[in-house]
């Protein structure tokens, strides 16, 4: 009887589907340019082991079909990064709609930690709040020196050593932005961005401001 139980349990274990992110991500060799776990050195493309925390699925699916430049100076780990000669040289390969859909699904399963869903759905900033936090974005925290964003007239402004934030509101999940600002070391030991200590309230506002930056607001 005991043997039968073991057999039954063994069969049941075999029926559990294996984690699915092994498949198309592996087939497309994403790991040649991206880290899929925190182990090992950073690679030329952005880390993807927390892709499910970081990205919005709709953006990923679109990006994988029509890649756009996010870091116009190249990746920070690139030896030529500081020379300013990397513009557009690291274009991501474009995938078919079907493959993009599947990889998006697999990437969204790569979760590093549980982030509070409610931050993705905060009340929008009032006009006054937005003006105040935009000021802090530019002057108090100097974000604009390294990140492109949109000014109040919808024009692109800012430095290029960090990823562009022009479409951050469509690209990133607000709760990840908040988490990154709070504790960047959770995600990367080798960021070129300064670490900020700010009040929770300020960080939430800054996150909300970054979430308002969208391509469709560009003029």
């Amino acid at each position: 009887m005991k043997i039968f139980n073991y057999l039954l349990m063994g069969g049941w274990l075999l029926c559990i589907p294996m984690p699915s992110h092994a498949s198309l991500i592996q087939e497309k060799k994403c790991s040649e340019c991206h880290r899929l776990s925190k182990d090992g050195n950073e690679k030329i493309g952005p880390d993807l082991f927390y892709a499910g925390n970081k990205f919005q699925a709709s953006w990923l699916k679109q990006y994988l079909q029509n890649p756009v430049t996010i870091r116009s100076a190249g990746g920070t780990g690139d030896p030529d990064f500081l020379k300013g000669t990397q513009a557009d040289s690291q274009r991501h390969p474009a995938l078919s709609k079907k493959d993009a859909g599947q990889i998006t699904q697999e990437l969204m399963e790569l979760i590093l930690l549980d982030l509070p869903e409610k931050i993705n759905h905060l009340e929008p900033l009032t006009k006054g709040q937005k003006a105040k936090i935009k000021y802090e974005f530019e002057r108090t925290f100097s974000c604009i020196s390294c990140h492109q964003s949109l000014n109040l007239a919808g024009k692109v402004r800012g430095g290029i050593s960090g990823p562009s934030l022009v479409n951050a509101g469509n690209r990133l999940q607000a709760r990840w932005v908040e988490s990154w600002l709070k504790s960047p070391k959770t995600y990367s030991n080798k960021s070129r961005m300064p670490i900020y200590k700010m009040a929770d309230e300020t960080r939430l506002r800054l996150t909300q401001f970054i979430s308002t930056l969208k391509n469709e607001n560009k003029r």
């Binding site: 108090t140 604009i144 020196s145 800012g158 700010m198």
Partner: peptide
């Protein structure tokens, strides 16, 4: 002015910041 644009529309709250004063 800010760092990457000359904008007249910005408000000017006090310069002291949380991150700097502690």
């Amino acid at each position: 002015t800010g760092c990457s644009e000359k904008s007249a529309e910005e408000p000017r709250p006090p310069m002291k910041t949380e991150s700097l004063s502690s």
